[in-house]
């Protein structure tokens, strides 16, 4: 019989790449020295998964509480890089942090990779400012997109550049709400459309080649305060006819929504979550609720 601890690196990598939950990958990496090689080499490609829910704790130290639905417990993470910084949940395993000195960083709490992004001051450049291209492509084609400021403008950063590239507006009232990535394209949702008044909250997300829009709508009372049930409507972009088609069945997918974005997870059962559901964080309740 083969010795499991003597698998060549390629096979350790292959098995690790089939572990979906970050919790399982960390357990795998602690089994023996050889199995830790993928973790040490930072070569694990994280797949979309049920997010850890970061709970707001008004402390300025480096602790954050997270709910792991997979483990079904509250975990306390100490991340020194968070000390004295404001943080937001983000996508693809990255958390965005902002310091008192207005420096912007990304942090991957798994790998502790913490790249700095250009300072906020570089967002004041005029859109047509030309930047010299970087000497080498450090980021391997990766890039960061932010929506910023009172006008909800869009800016793009590629590793190696020294400042943000501000996206030129095509119309005066293009307030951007959300962006999604699909293959080599960026899709951005603007507030100028006819739906923006009708729905409280619009999100854009990519899933298995589809571009989905998730509309959140909550009933409000006469004074305009949100009360009662929250409703979700999901539409998929029909690329050929350039129209939105309502999605009534998510199949084996579920969508996780919070204020800063959303994530689509395939096969959420393995994370102790239901498929064909929208999970959302309610502003005033600090908890998640399922909706089938």
């Amino acid at each position: 019989m083969a010795d499991w601890s003597q698998l060549p690196y390629d096979l350790v990598h292959e098995v690790a790449s089939h572990l979906v939950a970050v919790e399982d990958f960390l357990a795998f990496s602690a089994v023996c020295c050889d199995w830790r090689s993928v973790y040490s080499a930072k070569e694990w490609h994280q797949r979309p998964q049920v997010p850890l829910l970061m709970i707001f704790v008004p402390e300025k130290n480096g602790f954050r509480n997270f709910i792991s639905l997979y483990r079904n417990k509250v975990c306390k993470l100490e991340i020194p890089e968070f000390r004295g910084r404001k943080s937001w949940g983000s996508c693809s395993g990255w958390i965005l942090t902002l310091g008192l000195d207005l420096t912007i960083q990304l942090l991957n709490p798994l790998t502790r990779v913490c790249p700095s992004l250009p300072p906020i001051s570089s967002l004041q450049h005029r859109p047509n400012d030309q930047q010299p291209p970087p000497r080498n492509d450090e980021g391997g084609g990766s890039f960061v997109v932010i929506i910023y400021g009172p006008l909800y403008r869009l800016a793009l950063y590629r590793p190696g550049y020294t400042s943000w590239t501000i996206v030129k507006e095509t119309a005066t009232l293009n307030q951007f709400l959300c962006v999604a990535f699909r293959k080599d394209r960026i899709f951005a949702l603007c507030k100028a459309g006819s739906l923006s008044g009708k729905f409280n909250h619009l999100m854009l997300v990519e899933s298995r080649g589809d571009i989905l829009t998730v509309y959140t709508q909550q009933d409000s009372n006469r004074c305009g305060f949100p009360v009662g049930s929250v409703h979700f409507f999901v539409y998929a972009l029909d690329f050929i006819n350039k129209q939105w088609v309502e999605v009534r069945d998510l199949g084996n997918r579920s969508i996780f929504v919070d204020k800063s974005g959303c994530v689509v997870v395939c096969g959420p059962e393995r994370f102790n979550c239901r498929s064909n559901s929208v999970y959302f964080v309610a502003d005033n309740m600090q908890k998640m609720a399922g909706w089938g």
């Binding site: 096979l11 292959e14 098995v15 690790a16 790449s17 089939h18 572990l19 939950a21 399982d24 357990a27 795998f28 997979y70 393995r270």
Partner: peptide, 11 residues
């Protein structure tokens, strides 16, 4: 590999 990974889930 997928089958091996599945054995390790939640363990």
């Amino acid at each position: 590999s997928a089958k091996i990974a599945q054995v390790m889930e939640k363990k």
